[in-house]
Design a protein around this nucleic acid. Structure first.
Lengths: 237, 237
DNA sequence: ATCAGGGGATTGTTGAACAATCCCCCAATA
DNA sequence: TATTGGGGGATTGTTCAACAATCCCCTGAT
């Protein structure tokens, strides 16, 4: 009974204009419509979306705290360009969070919903791969790892992981050839899922550690060469 | 040479008005001037600080994303009142971060600066204890654990830990008798420091685990009874 | 090629205004 | 007594217009 009421709560939660604007911009950024390094000019975007500068600036502030935008005083806001150090740090934190989450596998943390959600991610990844939609494939893979972090059962970890993976998508946008960075991990995610479903915490942790090491290495190998290709300013239109 | 230039960088980084306002409010909140549950009215605070509502709202937004304030649509902003679940989650994440940081102790992570900073925190804690300044004692203890987290060498972990410990200070403000919650840990922090200085990672991790378990238990024991004592609205003046 | 300076564009901040919403008090009713 | 319904005032959400401060780029002088 009370569950029904709780489920209706989402409908009741209204969003402010700034939050809706932030949703739109977040989607555009993660889609690559606004690539890393792009400058978001208040006048142009505010005019296009039909919101005032003040409201738009609140949306900018929201996304800045998610790590997607950086604000430079008197210069404007830019889509963040993750550095090599950022990549290293992102994977350092991923190792910390994800390895701990799977190591502590217990029947309680493995609520049926968790496995179902992970399986859904793998299914979505398979469909994206078949359709050769590499951006969707990256989204599904990333969502899979968000579910792994969710095994820890911590709202704060969930929030950190969400920000982390959003940044990681920026990293992917810096480079071309998304297929190369996403496709190989479909199979590995499936194998990882099997270890988790079997409740083999230590095995999953070892598998995940090499997984993350490999991914980081592959990313860094091409990252230095790809960086200069990003234009540091300019309109997206 | 380049270090000198880097050190001057802080002086060069100007802050916007909203950020300066956020600094002031953050200090007030952590001092307890605005206790948890307090409502921060735009008109009153904006008038007192001499900033416009728009600027003040940007400051509110900053602090909301740090977890110190909560914004309720059309109702206003309030100093956050951490729940029992929050306390549990805060300590869950602390265990995750701090235990991992000390377990991975290596000569490289133990740069001389790290030990010096930790020793300075212990010194400050001793002085605060002697002066019976329990609020300062809590600050010093908390700073000590921020330095432990910093051993991981990760900017993102540092940021997470900073937010976490700010929330923890809110928890302390909910309850009276700060002495009871801070004084016993001065000694334990000293012992923990010795283990870290000796490079005994596993030993420090074990010590820290029981430390955090004890702290959480002690907090939760009195938290449920203390909660009702917090007034949910009212001016601080 | 480097440096100085000026004009234009953009941002930072404020103040005012209006609608929407909420909170509190009071009366009416069962 | 307890609950319901309805103002009235205060506060928030949002927009707009304006001005100062700052930055960027172009031009010209050395």
């Amino acid at each position: 009974m009370s569950d029904d009421l709780e489920s209706d709560r989402a409908l009741l939660e209204r969003l402010s204009t700034a939050e809706r604007v932030a949703d739109i911009l977040r989607t555009r950024i993660l889609q690559g419509y606004f690539p890393p390094g792009d400058r978001l000019v208040e006048g142009a975007i505010g005019g296009a979306l039909g919101v005032s500068r003040n409201t738009l600036r609140e949306a900018f502030r929201l996304l800045s705290h998610e790590g997607l935008l950086v604000q430079e005083l008197n210069r404007g806001v830019f889509v963040r360009v993750p550095t090599v150090d950022d990549v290293v740090d992102i994977y350092r934190v991923r190792r910390l969070i994800e390895c701990r989450a799977v190591r502590g596998l217990t029947p309680e943390t493995l609520l049926p919903g968790a496995l179902d959600r992970m399986a859904a991610c793998l299914r979505a990844a398979g469909e994206a791969e078949a359709a050769q939609e590499w951006l969707d494939l990256g989204t599904a893979n990333i969502q899979f790892h968000a579910e792994i972090a969710a095994l820890a059962g911590s709202p704060r970890i969930d929030g950190l992981m969400r920000r982390l993976l959003a940044e990681l998508r920026l990293v992917f946008h810096v480079m071309d050839d998304p297929r190369r960075f996403h496709e190989p991990y479909v199979l590995r995610n499936r194998e990882l899922f099997e270890l988790i479903r079997a409740g083999d915490g230590p095995g999953a942790e070892r598998y995940l550690a090499t997984y993350l090491d490999d991914a980081q290495r592959q990313l860094l190998e091409t990252y230095a060469t790809a960086r200069p290709a990003v234009r540091l300013a300019g309109a997206a239109s």
